[in-house]
Amino acid sequence: MSAENRIIASFVIPPKLSDKRLDQAAAELMPEHSRSRLQSWVKSGALTVNGGQCRPRDKVMLGDKLELDAEPEAQVTWQAEAITLDIVYEDEHILIINKPAGLVVHPAAGHADGTLVNAILNIAPEVENLPRAGIVHRLDKDTSGVMVVARSLIAHTSLVNQLQTRTMGREYEAVVVGTLTGGATVDAPIGRHPTERKRMAVVKSGKPAVTHYRVIERFAAHTHVRCKLESGRTHQIRVHLTHVKHPLVGDPVYGGRLRLPKGTTEELREVLSGFHRQALHARQLTLEHPQTGETMSWDVPLPEDFQLLLAALRKHVKDMESDEF
């Protein structure tokens, strides 16, 4: 098997991973692979330390060199399903998809089928040989918008590297509660909530996370913002904007109770109370093509429910202005 069809990677142990178990350090350095997969590579000798074979529980030290040279295996057992996808772009290496709200990305407990992965297996069965079926980043179930899926090992390696080095550009649009006076940056670590394990939170022990946001449009008691990520933590935008007291409209986990602005019309009340997902849309994705190196960018329009929300907020502002005269 040629080198380009093998999973090849090399890492040097940084200070933060020194004195960790080999399988733990490998999981930190290669999060796209499952812990069991990494352990099997260690045991088979495909994943070495300083050129030698070790055990998963052996400790690694600062400066140790980890090298992986493994043959890909079918890594998924999920079934292909004929689910319609909005494919924005495709070639032999990547798929660019405009994911609708409500579609789960990856099979998990409670969602064994009907996911984006099941749909991708139907149109690109070759992804069964890739880590996580080519999924290199995710969008929450109820977040809509653009995302990339790898179709080849070359693409998978390149895209994971772009995410880790923060050279992949991802921009989102959101509607938040409250009126923001201007843009800002939230630089706060995110980790599992200390008592509510299904939620994430800003915690000192969390992983570094940076979100930049700027104002697109202000309303009477809400703001339409553009967000740019420097990291990709679970629920990052939702957690960070909640942290600065501006949760996303409709967020069932972090939004709290419905807050209605003064003078809310029945029309706006119905729109806000009926918006049952976080008002978050992955608007733009920019990356280097894994094979050609060309910088490519895709911008997908806001979905209908998001547009209707904005229209209702604008109309409310106009109605308030009309009442003043």
Rank of each mutant, 00 (worst) to 15 (best):
N5T: 01
L17E: 01
S18L: 00
D19C: 06
D19L: 11
L22A: 13
A27S: 15
P31L: 11
H33P: 00
W41R: 08
W41S: 01
W41H: 06
V42N: 05
K43S: 13
S44A: 15
S44D: 01
A46K: 08
T48C: 06
G52P: 04
C54G: 03
R55V: 02
R57Q: 12
K59C: 01
V60R: 07
L62P: 02
L62K: 12
L62M: 15
D69E: 03
D69K: 10
A74I: 14
Q79P: 04
A82W: 02
D86C: 12
H93Y: 07
I96A: 15
P100I: 12
A101R: 14
L103I: 03
G114K: 06
L121N: 07
N122I: 00
I123M: 08
A124V: 13
P125N: 06
V127T: 10
L130G: 11
P131W: 13
H137Q: 05
H137P: 05
L139Q: 13
T143Q: 06
M147I: 00
L153W: 10
A155Q: 07
H156D: 00
S158P: 07
Q164R: 15
Q164G: 14
R166K: 15
M168D: 00
R170P: 04
V186A: 07
A188Y: 05
I190Y: 04
H193Y: 08
H193T: 02
M200I: 00
R214H: 09
I216F: 12
F219M: 07
T223F: 15
T223D: 08
Q236K: 07
H240M: 02
V253D: 08
R259F: 00
K262F: 07
G263Q: 09
E266T: 09
L268R: 11
E270S: 15
V271D: 02
S273E: 15
L287E: 01
H289D: 10
P290D: 13
T292A: 01
E294R: 14
S297T: 13
W298I: 00
D299V: 11
E304Q: 09
F306C: 00
F306I: 02
L309V: 02
L309Y: 07
L309F: 02
L310E: 09
A312M: 05
E321Y: 08
D323T: 01
